[in-house]
Simulated scan of single mutants.
Amino acid sequence: MPRPARFDTPLLLDAAVRLAATAGPLGVTMSAVAKETGAPSGSVYHRFPSRTALLAEVWLRTVERFQEGYYAVLATESDPRRAGRAAARHVVAWCRAHPDEAALLLYGAEQFGRADWSEEYAARAAEGNRRILGAVTALAEALGATGPRAAERVRLALVDLPLSLVRRHLRADEPLPPHAEELAEECAAALLG
């Protein structure tokens, strides 16, 4: 029976998240991940054939974890207004619970080398985005939000405003205030009507 890997993929990706949160995407290198975990660099290269693959995987794992909870909120609530408020609240709550991951997501996929990702990674990203956009579009339709202006208002309520609240505090390296979730929900309610 083979020995379990001492430096498995989740451990290496966790280290990459910490590095990205403190030093940005440029701080996520193969040698930095090896140093952060105490792993030999061969262990990192065994799991990620290149820095591009490492950056893609750390980005995708993080965004997919966020999207999983966000999608669940949108898909399980039958009342579209409640779903919208809950989705806005989820953005802030998830970021509070996962500050390193939230800091990583503030950079955007482009800074994690998206232009150089393999077709497989690009397809994963596109599928996740398509799923979330579909759920937001369905919520907009359920609210009767037709036309570009109404659709933009829904996206503002569910995505942009909660993220701007989080971004301001994370970039200032300060904790989210205790009322942040309530504020995101109130803003969403006001925009959704």
Rank of each mutant, 00 (worst) to 15 (best):
A75W: 14
E77N: 11
S78Y: 11
S78E: 11
S78C: 12
D79C: 09
P80W: 07
R81Q: 05
R82A: 15
R82Y: 07
R82T: 07
A83S: 12
R85F: 04
R85A: 08
A86Q: 11
A86M: 08
A88T: 06
R89Y: 06
R89A: 08
R89K: 12
H90Y: 05
H90E: 06
V92P: 02
V92E: 01
A93S: 12
W94H: 05
W94K: 02
C95W: 04
R96I: 14
R96S: 14
P99V: 06
P99K: 02
E101R: 04
E101I: 00
E101S: 05
A103M: 02
A103F: 00
L106T: 01
Y107M: 03
Q111T: 10
F112E: 01
F112P: 00
G113Q: 13
R114M: 14
D116A: 10
D116G: 12
D116H: 15
D116Y: 11
S118L: 10
S118H: 11
Y121D: 00
A122L: 14
A123S: 10
A123V: 14
A126C: 14
G128E: 02
N129T: 13
N129H: 12
R131P: 06
I132Y: 04
L133M: 14
L133Q: 10
A135R: 03
A135F: 05
V136M: 05
T137Q: 14
L139N: 07
E141G: 08
A142D: 13
L143D: 06
G144R: 08
A145F: 00
R149S: 14
R153K: 12
R153W: 11
